[in-house]
């Protein structure tokens, strides 16, 4: 079997292959370690980490919808200190990149998180989750307001030498505006998309299905929306992209690469098939061989227009 090159370089971040697992869908890796060979993953984006531990939102927090699910977990996590002392030592044993997803309520919290994680052995990059409320601005999400996006990224940029990934919120009018703001602020890489805000109602009981009323939609239902956003952003900025949103199999992943993502992250699919990330990796390799490609980076952003009518 001919070997295809799967290693990818995303700005300052080298990955042994372009398949990552998305934040919040793979815990801290240890939960899956007996079922998945973590050494084969391109990287693990760990659960959103805050300065202090958080208990999360009341139940019910998740509800299935057509080909997707809404979640309002409320960033339940162990906090950055417990992450460093209790979760990271386990992850250090593996070859895959460890990307810490961080979230804060204020610029200072983001800065403190970045500073705390800078230079910590075993952390390969930071991913800024800016889909969280900015308390200084009456709770409007950092990722929705381009000026707040630019500001939070540039303030974090000054506190860390780690590769900086900014995770874009899709809940905006024109995602290219927010993408440019993140790049202006100093983002090395953009990841997209986070979940789409939605809700679900039980007609019988006439109640919202989530205690929090709204939740973030993920899963196959959002794939066409996410794919379009990745393509749009790929046209608008020069930094490498990590694409995600509803990837269930290798074909979905390949579509994101063709749209312009240099790497992909598998999210919700990990819940229904713990080994899906490895299947996606193997499927991409097989696809490349079938297509006569030797290097995964050669297909990034190569999607062409639909055949003209005359050629049908």
């Amino acid at each position: 079997m001919s070997k295809v090159k799967m290693e990818v370089q995303l700005g300052p971040l080298r990955l042994q292959n372009p398949v990552l697992v998305a934040s919040g869908t793979f815990g801290y890796g240890s939960e899956y370690a007996d079922l998945v060979d973590l050494n084969r993953l391109g990287g693990i984006m760990v659960k959103g980490t805050t300065l202090h531990p958080r208990a999360g939102n009341p139940m019910p927090r998740m509800v299935e919808t057509a080909a997707g699910c809404l979640n309002s977990i409320g960033l339940q996590n162990v906090g950055v200190e417990a992450f460093i002392h209790e979760k990271l030592p386990f992850l250090r044993q593996y070859r895959c990149a460890v990307i810490v997803n961080i979230a804060g309520d204020s610029y200072e919290e983001f800065e403190q998180l970045a500073e705390r994680l800078d230079g910590v052995d075993g952390v390969h990059a930071l991913e800024l989750n800016i889909s969280c409320p900015n308390q200084e601005k009456g709770g409007i999400h950092f990722g929705v307001d381009p000026e707040a996006t630019r500001k939070v990224v540039s303030r974090v940029r000054r506190r860390t030498r780690l590769p900086l990934i900014v995770k874009l919120s899709p809940n905006v009018t024109d995602i290219t505006v927010n993408a440019r703001a993140a790049v202006d602020g100093g983002a090395d890489i953009l990841s997209l998309v986070n979940t789409f805000v939605g809700t679900a109602i039980d007609a019988k009981t006439r109640r919202f299905k989530l205690a929090n009323i709204t939740g973030g939609l993920s899963g196959p239902a959002i794939k066409p929306l996410a794919l379009y956003m990745v393509w749009q952003v790929a046209q608008a900025v020069k930094v490498p992209l990590i694409g995600m949103g509803g990837i269930m199999n290798a074909t979905d992943a390949v579509e994101f690469l063709l749209a312009g993502a240099s790497a992909v992250a598998v999210g919700t699919a990990n819940y229904l098939n713990p080994r899906v990330s490895i299947e996606v990796l193997e499927g991409i390799e097989q696809y490349l061989r079938e297509q006569g490609e030797k290097d995964v980076k050669d297909i990034v952003g190569t999607v062409k227009r639909c055949k003209p009518e005359s050629e049908f």
Binding site: T25, Y32, G56, P58, I73, Y271, P274
Partner: peptide
């Protein structure tokens, strides 16, 4: 009995409210 999207401890969608020495937790 709760809903269990992942069953593996990662989604946090199956939270049960408990009393601990530090107060209420999930």
């Amino acid at each position: 009995e709760t809903m269990m999207p992942c069953g593996l401890g990662v989604c946090l969608g199956c939270a049960v409210k408990v009393r601990t020495s530090n107060g209420i937790d999930y």
